[in-house]
Structure formats: C-alpha cells, structure tokens
C-alpha cells in the first residue's frame, strides 16, 4: 500500500480494513469446537478406541479381499438383486399411483383447503418414519419377505413424491388453467390440458429419482426382514462372510450407478 500512496499520514476515514475480523463467526466456530469435544466425551469416543478400531479395520479389510465370486454365492447375489429390482419397480409403481392423486389433492391452488390439509397430513406422516421403521411394522403385519419391502418402500415413495408433485403443481402458471376454466372445461379437462403439460417433465424426473432411491433403499429394508439383497447382505454379515459382503456392496454400487445413467436418459427423453 505504502509504495503506491505517497501521502505519509493516511487519516482514519480514508483507510478501511478490507477484511474486518468476523467475531460472531469466530465465536461460533469456537462453540462448535467445544461442542465436538463435549459430545465426543459423552459418546465415549476416545483416541485409543479409534486406533484399536483401525487395527480391527485392517484385519477386516484383509478378510474382504478378494471379493468372493464363487458360483453358489453369485447365484445368491443374482436372486437377491433380482428381488430387490422387483421390489423397487413395484414400490415405484404403487408409490406413483398413490402419489398422483395425493399430490394433486395437496396442491393448494387446485384443491379446496380442507382437502389440501388432509393430504398434507398424510404426506407428513409417510415422510416422518424412516423406511426401515415402516418395514419393521409391515414385516409384523404381512410377514417376512418381499411384500413387506414393497409396502414399506411404497409408503416412503408416497411421502417423498407426493410432496414434490404438490410443490411443482403449486409452482406452475395458473394462466392456462384460468383460460380453460373460462371456456367451461371440466376439472378432468383442466388437469389433462392445462396442468399435465406443465408438470409432466418434472414428474418424470421425480419418478426416475424415486426408482433410484427405491433401488438403494431396497438394500435396506432387507436388513429388517423385507426381502431382497438386504436380506442376503445381512446374512453375509452375520456369517462373517466379509468377502461376499464386498461382492454385494460393489454390485449395489454398480447397479445404483447404472440406475443413475438410465434415469438420466429417461429425463433427457422427456424434457
């Protein structure tokens, strides 16, 4: 600064600190650090324990490699994956079928207020419980197996998709709707001719995402008895077949990636 400014006595008003210290932010960081220390002590997270874990982890990783690709294991993997795929597809279909009317009902610009609030309440309830908890309840209600998984993921999809559908209907332009209403069109015609063209591309995106997340979650509901690859995975863990665990996890990752590519293509097709 001084090389360029020949004036030897800069007054206080002309010099301004470009980067003043942000004290509230620094105090916030300090508090955060204090919280981390406090919470770590509460949860009994200690360094020796972590180091001991790393030692275990080494042995654990050693047992995972190489991934187990024995034919009988691959058969199990194939069956589990197939069932997961079926669970994901059926849950997405059922979820979409329920979400469409529910989403419409929850949009405040199309449906009367009491109906909208009732629909919102249902959506909140569906969204609040984690798919695993819903799966536990369904396993008790309909027994172990794929059906419980399908039902649990359907509930999760409904909570997720109908909220998005409702929001995108609320965000659309009301002008075509008003124009159609002015011509005396019926409610169904308004939906088909004014609402759907505006929101369909986004719906397709939601459904693609739904399929994606259902595929991922179907590995989850199996842990509590909902069928699919999750059941295979949990059994492998319990039998300490860690090399087979790695095979399953890698397959799930690859499948989810393929799913993302497909859903991307789907979105492009309908844009």
């Amino acid at each position: 600064m001084s090389e360029f400014a020949p004036a030897p006595t800069p007054t206080r008003t002309t010099r301004r600190d470009a980067f003043p210290p942000n004290w509230p932010f620094r105090i916030g960081l300090l508090l955060l650090a204090l919280y981390v220390v406090y919470a770590s002590s509460i949860l009994d997270l200690t360094w020796p324990r972590f180091l001991l874990g790393l030692e275990h982890g080494q042995r654990f990783l050693g047992r995972m490699f190489p991934p187990n690709v024995a034919p009988d294991k691959l058969k199990l993997l194939y069956d589990g994956m197939l069932e997961s795929l079926q669970i994901a597809i059926l849950a997405s279909v059922a979820g979409t079928l329920i979400s469409l009317p529910l989403g419409f009902a929850s949009a405040r610009n199309l449906s009367p207020a009491p109906l909208a609030w009732a629909a919102r309440l249902i959506i909140v309830i569906c969204r609040t419980f984690h798919p695993v908890i819903v799966a536990i309840l369904f396993v008790k209600a309909v027994g172990f197996g794929a059906l419980a998984g399908v039902l649990a993921l359907t509930v999760a999809s409904v909570g997720f998709i109908s909220k998005l559908i409702g929001e995108s209907i609320e965000e659309m332009s009301m002008k075509p709707v008003e124009a159609l209403r002015a011509t005396g069109a019926s409610f169904l015609s308004v939906v088909v001719m004014a609402v759907m063209p505006q929101v369909l591309p986004r719906f397709i995106g939601f459904i693609a995402y739904e399929l994606d997340s259902n595929l991922r979650n179907s590995a989850l509901v199996g842990i509590v008895g909902g069928g699919g690859i999750g059941a295979t995975l949990f059994t492998a863990f319990q039998r300490f077949d860690y090399d087979f665990v790695l095979t399953i996890v890698l397959t799930v990752i690859v499948l989810v990636m393929i799913g993302e590519i497909i859903s991307g293509a789907m979105r492009k097709l309908f844009q």
Binding site: R49, G53, F60, F234, F237, M257
Partner: peptide
C-alpha cells in the same frame, strides 16, 4: 458417488464390525 450409494445402515454394519457396537460406529 461411492459413499452415497452405500446406505448409512450398511456403513453402520461395517463400522460395527470394525469398532464394535456403539455410538462411535453409528456416528
């Protein structure tokens, strides 16, 4: 992508196997 594709519960299974059951594995 890899961390996201494996669900938290599956990660928990891993960490429980490594660190033993408890809050550390969950965290």
């Amino acid at each position: 992508v890899a961390t996201r594709s494996v669900h938290a519960m599956v990660w928990a299974l891993f960490f429980v196997a490594v660190f033993g059951p408890g809050a550390l594995a969950g965290m």
